[in-house]
Nucleic acid binder design. Structure first.
Lengths: 134, 134
DNA sequence: CTGGACCTTCCCATCATGGGAGGGTCAAGG
DNA sequence: CCTTGACCCTCCCATGATGGGAAGGTCCAG
């Protein structure tokens, strides 16, 4: 299978597949005489694994670990779970940060008339309680 | 004031201040004979504005618009509010995406024993319901 | 006059991804 | 046989916001 088919089948772009190979996330693909990459269904399964992990927000280095565990018959599910829960904790931290931003923005926006006048608590909030400049 | 003082006073790093200048977010600073940048307290106020907007997650291009509105006596608060609420919507979209990830991860992790055995619904989920590879 | 703390510009790295140039491969059809 | 078009290849550049560091200039205090 050529890279285009592998891309469609896995949901990763051809560009990404080459990239994953170049950074050693996946093993170099077989090559035909034409120098075209050649993918097996096992290769596609690995690419799908990577794509699903990406869809869950795992960074590449974590996916590297997960791929290794996938192929390790002697793995313990505890290792996998730890990686997953660490990632959850990081996601929740980022969510909390963004929620703080949203809360602050709502607080500022609630006091803003949103009409044709220039007076605006949002600008004032950003300016540190000085309403205008220049 | 030199860039180091301006950095401390504004909360933006000297590196960032130069960067903001290089991309035209802020006007080029005055220069002394030594070629050192020279900042006024108004400059610092602008840098603080930028930093606060960054802390609220606004991307640079939005901050560009907000800075323009800050300096525009003829602005309408509706414009500011629209930018802020657009940004809130974007944040909420990202939060929703991450919450979906967290929910999926929790669903997978809940079924995972997290012990010494290799059986792991997390790996299986990523693999598309095929438990092992290699 | 020297040391150290500051400043300058310029380049590189991050992270994951896309875009595009310049060129090779291959199958179908005139 | 040759062209056309759809693939593929590698290599470089860009994103967005930030940090790191090299090589060199400035300035003040000892």
């Amino acid at each position: 299978m050529q890279i285009g088919q592998a891309a469609k089948a896995s949901g990763a772009s051809a560009k990404m597949i080459r990239h994953y190979e170049s950074i050693g996330l996946i093993a170099p693909a077989e090559r035909r005489d034409s120098n075209y990459r050649d993918y097996s269904s096992d290769d596609v399964a690995r690419l799908q694994f990577v794509r699903r992990a990406r869809d869950l927000g795992f960074p590449i280095d974590r996916i590297r670990e997960l791929l290794a565990l996938w192929g390790d018959r002697g793995r313990s599910s505890a290792e996998v779970k730890r990686i997953a829960l660490d990632h959850v904790a990081e996601l929740e931290e980022r969510i909390a940060g963004m929620r703080d931003m949203v809360a602050t923005l709502h607080r500022l926006a609630d006091g803003c008339a949103g009409d044709g006048r220039p007076d605006c608590p949002i600008i004032e909030g950003l300016a540190g309680c000085r309403a205008s400049q220049g």
